[in-house]
Structures are given as C-alpha cells and as structure tokens.
Simulated scan of single mutants.
Amino acid sequence: MFTVFIVVIAIIAVLLVLIVLVQNSKGGGLAGEFGGSGASQMFGVKRTTDLLEQITWGLAGAMAILALVSHLFIGEPQAAGGINSVNVEKANQRSLPSAPAPTTPAPATTPAPAQQPAQK
C-alpha cells in the first residue's frame, strides 16, 4: 500500500510541475508559447489563470495530505528484534576471548655475584 502512495505522489508531482510551467507569470512562462491571449481559451474558460491556480493549490494540498497519510502505512520498526542482519547474528554467536587471569609478578631477584676462582 505504501508503494501505491509513492506512485500517486510522484504522478501528482509531475502534474504539479507541468501546471506551474503552463501558468502565465510576469515573464510569460510557457503560456506565452501557446499564443499569449490564446492560452486563456485553451481550457474553454475565460479565466484560465484562476483555474490553473486552483489546480496548483489542489495538487499541492493533495501531495501534502498523501505524504502525511503515507506515514501510517510505513510500518512499525521491530522493537524486540532490533536489527536483523547476518553480521549481527554472527557477532552475537561469537564469544569474546577471555582476558588472561591476572598473575602476581614474580619477586625481583638480583643476580648472584660471579664467583672468582679460589687462588692458592
């Protein structure tokens, strides 16, 4: 169901871009490419700019609502399971090497003095 929301949002986004490009801005926009004043008769209504503005707001609102509603279909993260990965499972199965038992240091010994041969 989440995929359906994503596809519908993508379609609305493309339509929104096209509608915004068709609108007549101060610079003319793509509406000027259709013959200037002829663009106002393209949809069969007298005030095309009002219709295009309403369509723009409707598509933007629909996209915002669908984006918020799609959050409900994402699914809850697995709280008990955590991250499921082969690497995580292997790490959990391995045991850490145990530290060597502490040993008491051997008492320091001083080397015995070298014995000189006895003289006769």
Score class of each variant (00 low, 15 high):
A99Y: 05
A39F: 09
A60I: 12
A39Q: 06
P117T: 07
L59I: 01
T104F: 06
L15V: 06
V22W: 12
I65L: 03
L72E: 10
F43H: 14
I65F: 03
V14K: 13
N87C: 03
G29R: 02
E76R: 13
A39I: 04
T49Y: 07
P117V: 02
L59E: 00
W57I: 15
L18T: 08
D50G: 08
K90Q: 12
E89R: 08
P107K: 02
V45E: 07
R94P: 02
S85H: 06
G36M: 10
G36R: 11
T104Y: 13
L21F: 11
F43C: 14
A101I: 05
G75K: 04
L66S: 02
L66G: 02
I74M: 13
A101T: 14
V17C: 11
S70P: 03
A106S: 10
A79V: 15
E89C: 00
S95C: 15
T49R: 06
R94G: 02
N87H: 04
M42N: 09
S98L: 10
P117N: 07
K90N: 08
A108M: 13
Q78V: 07
T48A: 15
F73I: 07
L15D: 09
I83P: 02
L18M: 13
E53P: 05
L66I: 00
P107W: 06
A101P: 09
P97N: 03
M63P: 00
G44H: 06
G82F: 01
A108R: 08
V17G: 12
R94D: 03
T103F: 04
V20H: 08
V17Q: 09
L59A: 05
A108P: 11
L72Y: 11
G35S: 05
